[in-house]
C-alpha cells in the first residue's frame, strides 16, 4: 500500500522541552490513522510540524505529492494547504465575525485565483469564480450538514456545529490528507455518532485522515492503525487490539503500576 506521509525521526524542541523526540511513523494512503497519547504527549505539536506551523528541529516529513515524495519539513502553512494537507484545530479557530459561508469560501482560497484587479474591475472571470465559490462552498456545507446555517454568523453556531464547520473549511481546500485534532471534544453522544458517520464519508472521498482523539471508544472503533505518543516519544504502534493490550500504553495512560494491577 502507498505511503502518503512519512514521519522520519522528527524531533521538536521548545527551549529545554523535547515536545517530540525522534518520532517515526508512516501514514498509508486511503486509511485512517489514530494519533493518541496522554495530555502533553506532543500530538498537536506533531500536527503543527506536518501542517507547516512549526519547523521540526530534526528529522524529515515526506509528503507524497503527485510529482513524487518530497521533504516538506519547514514549508509554510499555506504551501502545505496548497499541496493538499488540511487541518482542524483542537481549540476551534474559526473566523468568528464572518458568516459560516465565508469561512468555507476562505477555506477554498487556494483553489481560486482572482486577485486585486479582478475584484476592482469585476471581470467576467471574477464574477464566474465568485459564483462558483458560493456553489462549491454550499456543497461542502451540505456535506457536513450545515447548509441551512450558511448565512449565520459562525460564532453563533453550537460547539458541535463549529467543529463541523472547521471540517468543512478544511475540506474546501480539497486535501489529500486531513488532520483532525480532537474533533469530538465537547460533543454530546449524538453529535459524536454523527461525527463518526462524517469521518467515514470523508474517507469515501479518497481523503486520508489522521485523527487525534481522547475518546478511546471512538478511536478504537474507526482507526485501523494507531500511533501512541507519550512525553514526545512514540511508545507503541499497531492495530486497536495490540494497543489496548500493550502494557506500556496502559502505563502511560493510567500511571506506573497500573499494567500489573
Amino acid at each position: 500500500m502507498d505511503t502518503i506521509l512519512k514521519i522520519d525521526g522528527v524531533s521538536k524542541r521548545f527551549g529545554g522541552l523535547m515536545a517530540l523526540a525522534d518520532v517515526s511513523f508512516e501514514v498509508k494512503k486511503g486509511r485512517i490513522l489514530g494519533l493518541i497519547g496522554p495530555n502533553g504527549a506532543g500530538k498537536t505539536t506533531m500536527f503543527n510540524c506536518i501542517a507547516g506551523i512549526y519547523k521540526p528541529t530534526e528529522g524529515r516529513i515526506v509528503f507524497d505529492k503527485e510529482t513524487g515524495p518530497v521533504d516538506v519539513g519547514g514549508s509554510r502553512p499555506e504551501q502545505m494547504t496548497q499541496m493538499g494537507v488540511a487541518r482542524t484545530f483542537q481549540n476551534i479557530r474559526l473566523f468568528g465575525s464572518l458568516p459560516v459561508l465565508d469561512n468555507v469560501r476562505i477555506g477554498r482560497h487556494c483553489r481560486a485565483a482572482q486577485g486585486f484587479w479582478g475584484a476592482v474591475l469585476r471581470t467576467k472571470g471574477q464574477k464566474a469564480e465568485e459564483r462558483m465559490l458560493v456553489e462549491q462552498s454550499m456543497e461542502y456545507l451540505d456535506f457536513v450538514g450545515l447548509k441551512n446555517k450558511a448565512l449565520d454568523l459562525s460564532s453563533s453556531l453550537s460547539y458541535g456545529d463549529q467543529r463541523r464547520l472547521e471540517i468543512a473549511r478544511a475540506l474546501a481546500s480539497q486535501p489529500k490528507l486531513l488532520l483532525l485534532d480532537e474533533p469530538a471534544a465537547g460533543m454530546n453522544p449524538q453529535e459524536t455518532a454523527s461525527l463518526v458517520d462524517l469521518i467515514h464519508a470523508i474517507m469515501r472521498k479518497d481523503i486520508t485522515v489522521v485523527l487525534i482523539e481522547h475518546d478511546m471508544k471512538l478511536v478504537m472503533s474507526i482507526c485501523e492503525h494507531l500511533v501512541v505518543l507519550d512525553h514526545g516519544v512514540k511508545i507503541a504502534e499497531g492495530g486497536p487490539r495490540d494497543i489496548r493490550e500493550n502494557p506500556e500504553v496502559i502505563e502511560a495512560y493510567l500511571g506506573r503500576g497500573a499494567a500489573h494491577a
Partner: peptide, 22 residues
C-alpha cells in the same frame, strides 16, 4: 471578493488564515 475575504481572515486569525492557504 477573494482578496477582501483573505484580509478579513488575516484580521480574525492569521494562523487559521495561513492554514487556509492564504
Amino acid at each position: 471578493s477573494r482578496l477582501g475575504r483573505a484580509w478579513l481572515a488575516i484580521k480574525e486569525d492569521p494562523l487559521a488564515a495561513a492554514s487556509c492557504g492564504i
